[in-house]
């Protein structure tokens, strides 16, 4: 699909590969990362309409008020949508083309917030909106406070 056509003649065109390291502060969202390390999912809650959001935000984007309350979201959620990528796409963590066999699912958690994840069920025909999925975590000692501390979601 995505062919890499390498330029042959640098006087016509040339490539310049680069790898750059950034240090991003998670700021207010750090609490979410700490929770992941503990095997928990939490979200901020808007004091106006009570909506919980992931990523958590210090201010509600719609109501422009501070979101000081954090709410536990549980370990389970309802499937909203699922799809599989049928072609090699770039892995942003390595810069390489890679095949992706696991479906990506969107889940509405028990606490009401929504998030994305991988799914253990690779047959997308069997994934129906509304079905209940449960988080499967990395072993505690391997968790880094990143979203992929949740290895995947499995149907209950």
């Amino acid at each position: 699909m995505l062919k890499k056509e390498e330029p042959q003649d640098p006087s016509v065109a040339f490539r310049y590969p680069r790898v750059i390291t950034y240090k991003h502060s998670l700021g207010y969202q750090s609490k979410f990362a700490h929770a992941l390390k503990m095997g928990r999912i939490i979200a901020t809650k808007c004091p106006v309409d009570g909506r919980c959001t992931i990523p958590p935000r210090i201010v509600c984007p719609m109501h422009h008020v501070k979101q000081t309350e954090w709410v536990d979201q549980g370990q389970r959620g309802k499937l909203l949508s699922a799809f599989k990528i049928n072609f090699p796409m770039f892995d942003s963590r390595t810069g390489d083309l890679k095949s992706w066999e696991t479906p990506i699912v969107s889940i509405e958690l028990e606490g009401g917030a929504r998030m994305d994840g991988w799914c253990s069920e690779t047959d997308t025909e069997k994934l129906k909106p509304g079905m209940v999925l449960e988080a499967v975590w990395r072993p505690a000692e391997e968790r880094q406070g990143r979203v992929d501390d949740i290895l995947y979601w499995k149907p209950v």
Binding site: R15, P17, V19, K23, H24, L26, S30, K31, R40, G95
Partner: peptide, 18 residues
């Protein structure tokens, strides 16, 4: 759940053609 700030290291890869 602690609240102290976490800084994550992320890498950006690019391979542009000029």
């Amino acid at each position: 759940i602690p609240e102290d700030t976490i800084v994550v290291e992320v890498q950006g890869h690019s391979n542009f053609l000029v």
